[in-house]
Every structure is written in C-alpha cells, then in structure tokens.
Design a protein around this nucleic acid. Structure first.
Lengths: 349, 349
DNA sequence: TCAGATTTTGGTTGCGCTACCAAAGTTCCC
DNA sequence: GGGAACTTTGGTAGCGCAACCAAAATCTGA
C-alpha cells in the first residue's frame, strides 16, 4: 500500500508552533474545501451566496486571520508598499506620508515605512531589505541615490516613484517640485522688494540637498540679476525652530550688511521671527525673513512669514496614485509630474 | 516507473512570474546546497569561512534578495512589528514612532505602520489585518479599544505593548504617563499662581480621550481645592495652532471671567500666545496660558509657554524595548511603566 | 428532453525558504 | 591509533495559501 521508497516514518506536525486557525480549519468547520474558503474571502462573487455566508460565519466564529505570508508566497503578490524617507522629524515628510497612507490604504495596501536619516548607505540597505517583501511597487524620497540603489530597484522590475523634487533623471517615475526654481522665485521676490544682500540659512546641506538646490537657485538668480549679493550660512545640525532662533542674531552679527534671510524651511524661519520679536529686531525693517513650505504656523507669527507653499500632501497622493496605476496596469499619461509651488508674500519681507 | 495514480503530466514551472534570483540559484552558482546558503546568511558562524565567503560573493554577484515571505512562512517568524497610532498629524505620535523605529531597527525589525484616525473600528480592522503578518509582537497606542480588538490581540498570543497613557488595565504591557495626574498637576500650578477661573480648551475630546483625562484631572483638582472654578471649551475639529489662535478671543468673549487657559496641547497653546501677541492681549496679565507636551517651540514664543513635558521619544523607546525583551524571552521586571512627566513653569502663567 | 454553455466546487501542486535529522569531516585525548 | 565529541554540510519535508485544471452542478434554448 505504501510507496515503495518511503522508509521515513510520518512525523508529528513538525514544529510545535502555530496554534493559529488556518484556512483548512475553517474549511473543515464549514464543511467545504479549502479553496472555496479562499475564494469566499478573496473573490466573493465567484462563490454562491449560501456557501459564502456559511464560510463568513465560520471565519467569524473561529476568529480566523489569513496568513498574509502564505498568501503572498503562493500568489507572488503582496499588498505592502515600502516607503523610504530621510526622516520623520521633519513635518514635511510626515505630511507626504499621510497623503501616501490615505491613498494606498483606500486601495487595500499597507505601508512599510523606512527612514534613512539622510544616509544613502542606509537607504540602499533599506531598499534591499524592503524588496525582500516582494512589494508590488516602491515609493522613495528624492532623486539622489547610490548607484547600487538604482540598480537594485531597476533589476527588481517593480514600479518606483521618486517623490519630493522634480527632475529629469529618475529611476522610473517622479513627482515633485523644482527646488532650484523655488529658490529663484524667492530670490526674485526679495530683489523685487529691494533687498540687496540676501543670506541663506540651512543645516546639513550636503544631506539635505533639496535645501542646497533652493540655495543654488537663489544664488544663480541673484548673480544673473546683478546689483545684489548672496551669502550662505550653514549650521551643522538641527532643523527646528531652535536653529533659526539662534541663527538670527549670529548671522546679523557676522554679516551686518545682510538685509534679508531666506531660511531652508519654515520651522527655522519661524524660530527667527520669534527671536526677532523677543529681542525687538525689526522685521522686515532691519532684516526680512522668508521660509519654505507654507506650514500653517507661518501665517500666525507676527509679522506673518513670507514663504513658498509646497503641496506636500498632494505629492504623497500623486505619488501613490501613480504607483497604484502602474501596479494595476493602467497606462500613465506621464511618468513625471511637476506639482509646482506657490509664493506667498506676507509681511515679513 | 511512475506512481500508479498520477495521470497528471509534469507541468511547466507554473506561473510565468518570478524571474527573481532564489536561494537555490545562489546555491547552484556557488556549488553548495541551498541550506548552506541559508545558513551562511542567517547564522554565518555555523558555516566555514571559505564557504561563507564564496556564498557571499555569489549573493553579491547575482544580486540575490532573500524572499522574506518564504522565510517567514517556513520559520513562522517575521521581523515586522505593527505599530498602530491614531494619527500622524500630531507630532507627538511621530516622536513616539521615532523612538520605536530607532529601537526596533537596531534589533533588525521593521515597522508596519497603521493609523486609525481615532476610529476604534478602523483600529480593530487594522489590528486584524496586521496580525495576518504573524508579527512577533504588536505596539498599540492607547488603552481604550473595542472589546473585539482586545480579544483579537489576546487570542493571537503575541506580546502587546499599549503606549501613551499609563493605566491599570492593559491587554498585556503598558508604557505611558497618567494624563489625569498631569491635569491635576497643571491645575495645582495655576491655582498656586492665583488664578481662579480656569478654562480648558480642546478638540474632538471624545476621540482624544487623553485630553479629556487631563481635563478630568484638572477639574477634580479644582473642585477639591475649592475657591476656584473650571470651564470646558470644546471645538469640533483641528488640533493645530489655528485652533488656539481662534479659540483665544472666542473664549475670552464668551467667558470674560476666565483668567487662565489650559490647552489640550502645546500647538494650540502656542497659537493662542501668538494671537495674544498680535492682538496685544496681555499674557499672563489678562489671561494665563498653559500647554501640554513640551514641544521645543513652547520655549521660543513670547512669553515662553508654561507646559508639561512628556517624554515622547522615551515612551517609544521603552515600549519597543519592552516588546523586544518579551519577544526574546527575557523576563521583565514589570509589565507597566509610568514614564512620568515634568511641569515646566514659564512666564505665560 | 438533451446537448451545450455557464456557474460553482474541488484536487493537486508548488511558491521559496527553514526546521529537523542524518551524514560526513575534524579535532581531541588517552 | 581509535573512539568520543565536536564541527560542518546535505537531504527531506512542509509552512499556509492560491494558481491551475478538472469535475460537478446548474442553467440555456431549440
């Protein structure tokens, strides 16, 4: 009766683990085959109403939770989308993530979040680990990566959306705005208002190269316009209001000619405004202050902060939407989207 | 030769998918058995140096990325930890998440993030879905859940840490602080400074029940102390500075007796301070303002904001550490940790 | 009424990996 | 020198599910 070449005795159910209810348990309890349970859950319309009801009731009764790993392995499909960002400390990324989250969750996907702390090696490592989840797509902040990260993602043959900045060379798809252009627009605004020595205040600008791009855009515009000059103030760390708070007096002491300051972001700029207020430094009388991002608080300080509003949540939504389209095989009108930005001139300049 | 009951012809390699390099590919290329490759990657010390080198080189050369799903399925172990929070819009949760992230990543785990938007039904659904990943543990914000969520988690038989508030009844483990006590401490401070009619300003306090707990603590303390009264101002939505900004004048108009305001959080309180500043309302002369959380910006406004500093990142770290201990089977000194808080009296009161 | 089309259900196999066991190779010490 | 103890490698099976194909049940229409 038994196969000729099977000297091996039947073993106990292998490891002593997994007390959890499985699909087969449900099937047995409901008196149907496992595959019918699978279908009742994943493609309800292909199962008759009676059975479907019976299966659902049994699922409920046993507290069955499908094992995603098994499903994913069998179908070679996961509903997890890795999202890689440089940092969570920066509100901006959080808002983008919210946009992503709401979009992909509505489509039944889950987010696997990784943060690189602005370290490209960590980014490569994260990308590699996360690809191990055989995701249907990847969302990645920024356009600058190590060559091996790009290779990895290209070889993985999954749709990839790089978000935050808009640029010509992307791995696959791209959603963002031009930071160089944003810098130029702010420079134009400041020159227009008559300021002649414009400082840019940033931190960790090798890592935060988008801030550097804004500076580059500003610098080039000022150089081309003539009649004004720029100066860069770079701090080694931090990105919050405390930096702006300290930078303001530092900078004015170091370079008294400065009559306008463009901060790398609104948080820093708000810090500077608060400091000016406390110390009685006239804004924009002594120095004009501008920020970037358009955080709600920029409108609440006195004087209200001139800033550039970036559509952060929209970036997240668009990136996710684009990715989902590609996952679903919908043809895309375009692989790159420039979401733009809006200069919001207020009383601080 | 063939088994008697197998009329089925051998098929093509099934689905046309998965061009990816597998462990067997690496094994073949390196001239070792698959299991050796597995060991070289997961338990390097059990493989001789020579083979290990050869395997690693082959992995590198072929660009092999292990399929986590298969590994997880085979070993019944995932290195993914679900983290469920009510919202990402609130900085507080983000900071807790950062603490969690840095701790679990250092231990080789990844975070699966879900946000409930303060909806307990969504929370239950999320918990169920996330349990499908057969995680080694779960991190969950708050102590209040639907009965079915608690049942689900208890039945899943995985360690669970509930974080944010500290309380007596938890599913498994708990890290947080007592919000009732925080409210009482702030009330004591305000009465101490001589204020006699204290308003509490919050939003969505059915959902944000931790804010409600702070109010309850405050209210009870004021009632017990005698000689002073409290009043609650609740707004339907929002949680940012804009709410505080608008609330300040609303509240003073609605109840001119109010001489102190305790806001549900620092963001709102800062909004109020900024408004007071713009409109020339004396703080604390006309009205004292206090916040909760101890965000950095609370120290930068003028007047500096009295607040209660909550150890947010620490909560994340402790919660993660606790969970990891249990995952690793390390016995725990205690199942509940009160991380406490610090009253920071500043010039706004 | 019955062949053919359609819907609904079930069997078998394998996704890629690791647990378990066994075998081969090494080292050690009396 | 030989056996015990240890280290290193390999074979086999199966984790829980869905794809694929086939079979059964039901519905058409002439």
């Amino acid at each position: 009766m038994d196969p000729s070449s099977a000297p091996m005795r039947p073993r106990e159910p292998r490891r002593g683990r997994r007390t959890a209810v499985t699909l087969s348990d449900v099937a047995a309890a409901a008196g149907v085959s496992p595959i019918t349970v699978s279908r009742a859950l994943n493609a309800p319309e292909t199962v008759s109403e009676g059975l479907r009801g019976r299966v659902n009731a049994t699922v409920e009764a046993l507290g069955y939770v499908p094992n995603r790993m098994a499903g994913a392995l069998a179908s070679a499909k996961t509903r997890v989308i890795p999202v890689i960002v440089p940092s969570l400390s920066n509100v901006v990324f959080v808002e983008v993530i919210e946009g992503i989250q709401e979009t992909i969750e509505a489509a039944g996907y889950q987010m696997l979040l990784g943060s690189t702390d602005y370290d490209l090696d960590r980014e490569a490592a994260l990308a590699s680990t996360l690809l191990g989840w055989a995701p249907p797509g990847v969302l990645l902040a920024g356009l600058r990566h190590l060559p091996r990260t790009a290779t990895l993602l290209k070889n993985a043959d999954v749709p990839v959306v790089e978000f935050m900045e808009y640029g010509a060379r992307c791995i696959d798809m791209n959603v963002g705005l031009s930071h160089v252009r944003a810098g130029a627009v702010m420079a134009a605004h400041l020159l227009d208002r008559g300021y002649r020595r414009v400082g840019f205040v940033g931190t960790r600008m090798r890592d935060d190269y988008r801030a550097r791009q804004r500076y580059d855009g500003m610098r080039r515009h000022i150089a081309e316009a003539g009649g004004a000059s720029d100066v860069l103030f770079e701090y080694p760390s931090g990105l919050g209001q405390a930096v702006g708070w300290h930078a303001l007096t530092d900078v004015l002491a170091a370079d008294p000619q400065v009559d306008a300051l463009f901060f790398a972001n609104d948080e820093m700029a708000v810090g500077a405004v608060l400091r000016a207020q406390r110390d009685g430094i006239a804004v924009p009388g002594r120095v004009a202050i501008a920020g970037f991002n358009g955080l709600p608080m920029s409108a609440l300080v006195t004087p209200a902060l001139t800033t550039i509003i970036s559509p952060r949540k929209e970036i997240g939504r668009q990136a996710a939407t684009m990715l989902l389209s590609r996952i679903n095989g919908t043809p895309l009108a375009q692989r790159r989207i420039d979401v733009g930005f809006v200069l919001e001139p207020r009383s601080s300049t």
